[in-house]
């Protein structure tokens, strides 16, 4: 029989042959160990090539994503769905650096501009949504979600002495971590959030892993208990 040339074996391995020709190559390989070995070497090379250059997330992608989002001023209000897909596990490492994520998302939300309601951010990553600001300022963890599904979870101080609180904006499908600065609450991390449907829930148990990771990265000391949380609130988070 003919010695099959490298090209047809290569096409077989790359899935570029019609089914009948592919079957003929397989039959030839079954009948001839030499052909089988060549086919096998090509297969291993293909597998090894993917291993040699994995498509992994890179920390520098966050800055590029920010550039892309800033680069084209088109608008859409369907951002929660986008956020969910962008933060899917596959790409999660890209967004895990909380500061970079806040920067990216701040740019994105800044473009929403004139939206009256729902979650909103100033372009610098400050939280501009009046309802959420009120919840961060006043609400206690024990009070659970308000009518719009907004709740606070953990409260603590970071190493710079800022008060930080995790929150969920249930109706908007996001949860995050915000820290108090002189001019308002600044977003440190944000992740898609699905409110649990169970009757008993604790905000911290629902907090998405990227937000908890941001807490771990920032926290200095312990989270506040209910009494300390109420005192900090009454003091205006100063």
């Amino acid at each position: 029989m003919n010695r099959l040339d490298d090209e047809i074996l290569m096409r077989r391995v790359d899935g570029e042959l019609p089914p009948d020709e592919a079957a003929a190559v397989d039959a030839a390989a079954a009948a001839d160990p030499g052909t089988a070995a060549r086919l096998d070497a090509l297969r291993r090379l293909r597998g090894l090539a993917r291993e040699a250059f994995p498509a992994t997330a890179d920390p520098r992608d966050a800055a590029l994503a920010a550039r892309i989002l800033a680069g084209a001023p088109a608008r859409t209000t369907d951002w929660t769905g986008w956020l969910r897909s962008a933060l899917a596990p596959r790409l999660a490492p890209v967004w895990a650096a909380s500061a970079a994520a806040a920067f990216v998302l701040g740019l994105a939300f800044g473009q929403l501009g004139g939206r009256d309601e729902g979650f909103a951010l100033a372009p610098d990553g400050g939280i501009a949504d009046v309802g959420l600001v009120r919840v961060l300022d006043r609400r206690l963890a024990a009070q659970g979600p308000d009518a719009a599904g907004r709740a606070v979870g953990l409260s603590f101080r970071d190493a710079e002495g800022r008060w930080c609180r995790t929150f969920a904006a249930g109706d908007d499908g996001v949860a995050g971590l915000a820290c108090r600065e002189a001019d308002g609450w600044r977003l440190e991390a944000l992740a898609p959030f699905a409110a649990s449907t169970g009757e008993v829930r604790t905000a911290s148990a629902d907090t998405p892993a990227p937000v908890l990771a941001a807490v771990d990265a920032l926290i200095a000391g312990e989270t506040l208990d209910a009494a300390a949380e109420a005192r900090a609130r009454d003091a205006g988070w100063r």
Binding site: A55, T56, D58, I68, G71, A72, A74, T76, S85, A108
Partner: peptide, 18 residues
């Protein structure tokens, strides 16, 4: 953001690999 931006962001890992 729009579909173009979203797709381009999602493409970053493949662009970097290439």
């Amino acid at each position: 953001m729009d579909g173009f931006q979203r797709e381009l962001v999602e493409l970053l890992p493949r662009l970097r690999r290439f």
